[in-house]
């Protein structure tokens, strides 16, 4: 091989790869609007993205799998913990992660910025990205969710547990908050009545309890969630 041939290898290699790449870039630009639901990309969502960048959240958390790997991926966080769950953690991380061995800083995010970021996460959750990350795939529910789905037929308490903020502090099989104890096997320790009593008035059962009383639950909801929890053995 002569130097001249080598030069032609260089030229052809570079040009052919660039052509493939630029053509695909052009087509991607065309398709992204649909794949990312660009029609729902409102000003609020954009404001949320700006806030997300302003506080450098991405240098602890990944989103779409990029960024730092120090904290949970936020691609599907809206699906995972919902609006209230997100708000609670951003507003008071010290409390939300009081029992965790890894802390999230209190960045003094304003309420408006938090609301915008929630809109941003709501939009990100819907991006059609070949179903990544696997742990949040709707096709492959996490173990915590499996436990709940398995119980939904038996008791609607599982849905109450997930949607009424219990998971901000408690976890099932590693999914959920860490401020309160994990409840994977709480049914071994506590009866239905005991759980009902505790949830309404934690300090009445244990004077040192740090859990706030759950006053918003209706009697029916309380009964269902207590039945669900007592079944976890």
């Amino acid at each position: 091989m002569t130097k001249k041939i080598a030069f032609w290898i260089f030229l052809l290699g570079t040009i052919s790869s660039s052509v493939v790449f630029l053509a695909a870039t052009w087509d991607t630009q065309r398709q992204v609007a649909v794949l990312s639901n660009a029609d729902k990309l409102s000003d609020r969502v954009v404001a949320g993205k700006r806030a997300f960048q302003k506080y450098n959240c991405n240098d602890c958390h990944t989103i779409l799998g990029f960024g730092a790997y120090y904290a949970p991926d936020l691609t599907r966080v809206f699906q995972r913990i919902g609006e209230e769950g997100i708000r609670f953690r951003i507003k008071d991380p010290e409390k939300a992660f009081a029992n965790s061995w890894r802390k999230m800083p209190d960045l003094r995010v304003t309420d408006a910025e938090t609301a915008d970021m929630i809109e941003f996460f709501r939009w990100v959750t819907e991006i059609n990205n070949n179903d990544w990350p696997p742990q949040d795939s709707r096709k492959r529910l996490s173990r915590g969710e499996q436990a709940m789905v398995a119980s939904v037929g038996v008791t609607p308490g599982a849905a109450v547990f997930q949607s009424k903020g219990c998971m901000n502090c408690h976890s099932l099989h590693g999914t959920g908050g860490t401020f309160g104890p994990a409840l994977d096997t709480v049914g071994r320790r506590l009866s239905v009545e005991r759980i009902e009593h505790y949830v309404r008035d934690p300090k009445g059962v244990d004077p040192g309890a740090m859990m706030p009383p759950q006053k918003e639950l209706t009697d029916r909801e309380l009964e269902e969630v207590a039945k669900f929890l007592s079944s976890l053995k």
Partner: peptide, 15 residues
């Protein structure tokens, strides 16, 4: 390397 950039486009919402 140029077209190889695609190994970062698997899960971002690209085709």
């Amino acid at each position: 390397g140029i077209a190889g950039t695609g190994h970062h486009y698997y899960w971002i919402g690209a085709p």
